[in-house]
């Protein structure tokens, strides 16, 4: 195979034709869909609306997954931070809001 070449005549290398790497531009639409981020938002909203803490915890877990799979920091961070906010809000209302032994009961 051509991996062995000792003489310069047989050298396939051509430094003159070397082109530096140009990362192909990828439009934001072509990026794979961030499903876990979407699920996190859905769970987060459900957790806040129905005061269901399992939903909020799942939202936080999905956030973690989305965060771990993040490729483009700028565009993804928006959605993830929103989902994270919903998740944390759900947890706060669950544990601080309803846990209060109010005089109304």
């Amino acid at each position: 195979m051509s991996s062995h070449n000792s003489s310069s005549a047989n050298d396939p290398r051509q430094p003159s034709s070397a082109k530096p790497f140009v990362p192909p531009a990828v439009s934001p639409q072509d990026l794979p869909v961030d499903y876990s981020g979407f699920i996190a938002v859905v769970f987060g909203i459900a957790g806040v609306m129905f005061r269901y803490k399992l939903c909020s915890w799942l939202a936080i877990i999905c956030c973690a997954q989305s965060l771990a799979n993040m490729k483009n920091v700028e565009t993804d961070l928006k959605q993830i931070s929103m989902a994270m906010m919903f998740g944390i809000m759900g947890l706060v209302t669950n544990y601080l809001g309803t846990g209060r032994p109010g005089p109304k009961s």
Binding site: P12, R13, Q14, P15, S17, A18, K19, F21, N69, M70
Partner: peptide, 21 residues
Amino acid sequence: LLKEGQNVFKFYASGRRYCSG
């Protein structure tokens, strides 16, 4: 190597006869 995300790595080479990269 160029790292894209946590599980995609890219390697580039150029400067050879018959091909541009």
